[in-house]
Computed example of a mutant assay.
Amino acid sequence: MSRWFSPNPDKAWVEKWFLIYSPLWMASMAMMMFTGWDKSFGDAALLWHGILTALPAILVPMLVARRYEQCDWRDSYWLKANLYMVVFGFFGNYFGSEYFFDVLGMVYNYPNATTNLDSAMVGSGEQPVPLIMYFYTHAYFITYHATANIVLRRIRTSGVPGMALLFPVVIFAVGYFWAWMETKAMANPMMASSFYYKDIPRMLAYGSAIYATYFIASFPIYYFIDEQRERRWTLLQVVAGGLSASMLTFYLLDIAAHWVGQL
């Protein structure tokens, strides 16, 4: 039977919450950027905004979804989904950002965000990664992965022939869609004082495809976390999955850097 949501009710409820929350965090980010207060507030205020942007993805399921759970909270899907995203999102910022700085000319301009965290050995080191980006990434990636789960599930349960070939095609399509959407949303004149690309044509030509490597590596791993209630993942398996997706992305980013070359 074709279905959009998981047969595991614990997972289905959390995915629905992630979808409900998505326009809320998007509105919060848009308000911050368009009003310009990301430039007028200090580091502490920005960190609080980042924390409050990511926190509902954790707190609401923790407080509400347990009504729907038929397991101990340490075995709950909301915990595993967020744990996976912490692992994968950390890699994306700590290591992955360096490729976007040096290969695609991405620039963060947040002089008031003084708390930074990024790799010491990967990349040129010319730009730091503001700590707030780790919290924003958590919200972004929760939405991207939840929508990917829903589309992939619909395809897998539809009975369409040739699933072995169709599944990776859909993974790439959904990954490229979100990569393109984020690139399009971020690379606009209204945000140029905070975020821009040194070479817009280069970014438009290669950037979305390179960013999509994150999701090509991650979506098929994340999809199977607790997809069946009787086949739950352990927390160790979730962490291993996040680390595996991170390493695969590392390889793909470096291969892309050979293809595109540095600025």
Rank of each mutant, 00 (worst) to 15 (best):
Y68W: 11
M121G: 05
A187H: 12
G175E: 05
G89Y: 01
F18N: 08
G50H: 02
A57Q: 10
A44C: 03
F135H: 03
A192K: 11
Y68P: 03
L236F: 08
W78A: 06
R67P: 09
W73N: 12
W37Q: 12
Y84V: 07
H49A: 08
L152E: 04
F167G: 07
V86C: 12
T234S: 15
I132P: 01
G175P: 07
L248E: 04
I200E: 09
L235F: 12
I200Q: 07
E126Y: 07
D72V: 05
L248Y: 08
D43K: 02
F195M: 05
V129N: 00
T143N: 11
G162T: 11
A256M: 10
A113D: 09
G241M: 05
P111A: 12
E69N: 15
Y144W: 15
S193W: 00
Y222I: 11
Y211P: 01
P9H: 11
D199C: 03
K80D: 10
M163E: 13
W4D: 07
D226S: 14
T115I: 10
A45I: 06
I221H: 10
Y196V: 01
H258Y: 02
I221R: 08
A27Y: 09
F135P: 01
P128G: 04
A217W: 05
P168V: 15
M247K: 00
P9I: 09
M191Y: 11
W259A: 11
Y84R: 08
M32Y: 11
F90P: 01
M85N: 14
G125I: 04
M186G: 14
F34S: 13
A45Y: 04
A173K: 06
A12H: 03
S22E: 14
Y214L: 04
I155Y: 02
V87Y: 06
I216L: 12
P201S: 14
T157R: 12
E69F: 13
Y197C: 00
T249M: 04
M33K: 10
S244D: 08
Y206F: 13
F101V: 00
S193Y: 01
D10P: 04
I171W: 01
P128D: 06
T115F: 05
H138Q: 08
Q70C: 00
H49I: 03
F219Y: 14
F177T: 13
I255M: 08
A245N: 05
F91L: 03
W259I: 08
R66H: 10
R74A: 09
R202N: 09
E182A: 13
P23L: 09
F167D: 13
P23D: 13
I51S: 03
T53M: 04
F95D: 01
R229W: 12
S246P: 07
T137I: 00
Y136V: 07
A257Q: 14
I210G: 00
F215H: 09
I225P: 02
P7K: 10
M1V: 12
I221V: 15
L83F: 14
A212C: 15
L47D: 04
D226F: 09
M29W: 10
I58K: 07
L131Y: 00
F101C: 00
M62D: 10
A57R: 03
S76T: 05
L83P: 01
L263N: 13
S119Q: 06
F90N: 02
V103P: 01
A212N: 08
I142L: 11
L235Q: 14
N112R: 08
T53D: 02
L24H: 07
F91V: 03
E182L: 14
G159H: 12
A30C: 09
N109G: 02
F224K: 15
G42K: 10
I155G: 02
F167M: 13
R67H: 14
L59D: 10
